[in-house]
Amino acid sequence: MKKITAYTALVVGALIFAYPFVWMLSASFKPEYEIGDMSLMASKWTFASYQLVFDTIPIFSAFLNSIIVSLAVTGAVLFFGSLAAYSLSKLKWRGRDTVFNLILFTMMVPFMVLLIPLYTLVVKFGWTDSLVGLIVPFMMNATALLILRQSFLTIPTSLLEAARIDGCSEWRILRQIVWPLSIPALITAGIIVLTANWNQALWPIMVIRDEALMTMPQMVLLFTVGGGAQARLGPQLAAGILLALPIVVIYLIFQRQFISSMASTGLKG
């Protein structure tokens, strides 16, 4: 009996969190005049909503821009983050603790203080209306650095010493010993950065005006509130599906890693 109550509650929860997406998917394939219906079924299925999206906005270039920006940022964060994390965890140098505390402190700075001055800096560099302006300011990430450092700390120093005696450079040790042993941490940090970046909308709205350089969230947002969708709901939902789909597919494949990754950011705070 208790079990039945628990399952009922679990199913109600699943409906609350998943049904809106299922409805959204189905409605994006409905004729516009049937979207008001509550049912998931349509009298006929149509690509008209998607057609309007493809005809009105350069969604394909937005998709490409999103992929370029997300991958560039994630790659840079992991690369420079592991260099820094290795230095902070396995190498000894004067001032190391001070630098580490400084980096911890930067995590407490709310992004809204930086919003305006960072924007004016990007303007000064001439990076507005350029993907560089979306990539370079976010190439380093303290959260990723901490995740990597935590993992590097668990690698026995004796292992690294042995490699050093054999004449390995620190760079080669990082590449051939530390990275292969830290794949879960690299995935964890990568997932956090990739998701945040794929969904980032506020910064692109500030920096990008040229439609050809917009990323997916900004393009879809502008299409929705800027009148491109001609106040029709179907195309808005279709554009939303196109924005959500890649990250949802990756999520469903790697859901275990996603959940533990994101939880790890909260558990440390």
Binding site: G13, P20, T195, T224, Q236, L237, G240, Y251
Partner: peptide, 23 residues
């Protein structure tokens, strides 16, 4: 169920806003 409950977390706020403008 855990996978389902977590789904909205990974989806962009832009999508969520489109969805709730209708709901």
């Amino acid at each position: 169920f855990r996978t389902i409950y977590f789904l909205p977390v990974v989806v962009s706020g832009v999508v969520v806003a489109i969805l709730f403008s209708q709901l």
